[in-house]
């Protein structure tokens, strides 16, 4: 187990190093930040000064070497626009994004799992078919449009929920979250629902497919033959066995939920790091873009690792140490 974790961490470090190079070169090609930062009537000398101050006058390889050297010491450069450390900016806003992503993930499981199990138990009933039709809609409808429709219905027409911002942030046991104030929760409802929709649709499909497969297994027949109440058969014997793919996919997809939060945050003006990314891309704020990508890469790599470990806990047949690569 320990060997496995160490090997995986080394692999992840390598992946991070390669990706940082790709990202750095890619972002370098985006455009000339000086053109955005300098005022329109700046002289050539002014521009050169700005470039020198930001270290942009050096060759690319030197910039990268400098970047790596600084990054290893935890310094990812200062934002061209804000003048603050880029990593600090990301961390400031990361809480809001992670909160949104986690709430959306929890909501998607709370909604998707029961619906999917129900649809799996009665695949040919009207309710089961409607649930499946709903799930096709769920991952077909573009997230941003669903967000707009929710704003239109609940914020504009009914006027019951706020359409933008994060609301009050409460703190409890040193954690800052909107979940601790009523105002914050109210602000969370629409963005979290929007973000949860696609995940809920996938969970429904996974749960339904899992139930249909597991129901024919001998252990379920045996549990029934034993005279166990249906609640226990479904709640314990079936549920435990369908959870493996669901946990795997849900865990792996948290990264993509965080990435997709870029869209949700833009619609709802949610002050997270996704919105920061879009703003930074528009403003050619390279250090922030790079810092964002490094953070998301790190989260993805860690999620993979955690899911692999969880997998072995849920399914003892999987022996991590013996796996190749």
């Amino acid at each position: 187990m320990l060997v496995f974790i160490i090997r995986r961490l080394l692999q992840s470090l390598l992946a991070l190093a390669v990706m940082s190079l790709l990202v750095f070169v890619g972002v370098y090609l985006i455009g000339d930040p000086v053109a955005i930062l300098a005022s329109p009537d700046a002289t050539e000398v002014d521009r050169e000064q700005i470039a020198r101050a930001l270290g942009l006058d050096r060759p690319l390889w030197e910039q990268y070497a400098l970047f790596v050297g600084e990054a290893l010491r935890g310094n990812f450069g200062k934002s061209f626009v804000f003048g603050q450390p880029a990593m600090g900016l990301i961390f400031e806003r990361m809480g809001a994004t992670v909160e949104l992503a986690l709430v959306a993930t929890v909501v998607s499981i709370l909604v998707g799992l029961p619906l999917g199990i129900y649809a799996g138990l009665r695949p040919d009933g009207i309710a089961g078919r409607s649930i499946m039709a709903g799930s096709i809609l769920g991952f077909s409808l573009p997230t941003f449009w669903v967000g707009l429709m929710l704003i239109m219905i609940f914020a504009v027409q009914l006027g019951v929920l706020p359409a933008s911002g994060r609301g009050e942030v409460g703190s409890f046991l040193g954690l800052h979250s909107s979940l601790f104030t009523l105002n914050g929760i109210v602000h969370l409802i629409l963005p979290a629902t929007t973000l949860a929709l696609v995940r809920a649709a996938t969970t429904i499909r996974l749960a339904r497919a899992g139930v249909r497969e597991v129901l024919h297994m001998d252990y379920v027949k045996f549990a029934r033959a034993k005279g166990l109440p249906e609640r226990r058969v479904i709640g314990v014997h079936v549920l435990k066995n369908i959870m493996i793919p669901i946990v795997t996919v849900t865990g792996l997809e948290i990264g993509s939920v965080i990435a997709f939060a870029v869209v949700t945050e833009t619609i709802y003006a949610w002050p997270g790091m996704g919105k920061l990314l879009i703003d930074s891309i528009v403003n050619l704020d390279r250090p922030v873009v790079v810092a964002y990508l490094i953070v998301v890469l790190f989260i993805l790599v860690m999620l993979n690792l955690v899911v692999d470990i969880l997998y072995s806990v849920l399914d003892p047949r999987v022996r991590l140490g013996e796996q190749k690569g």
Partner: peptide, 28 residues
Amino acid sequence: IANGFNFLLSGYYWISVFPGLLLAVAIV
């Protein structure tokens, strides 16, 4: 749809809603 977003909050719903519906129908 993006263009309509700016008008949505003022109640001009059709600029965003109809293109979105068409998009949804195509994807579904």
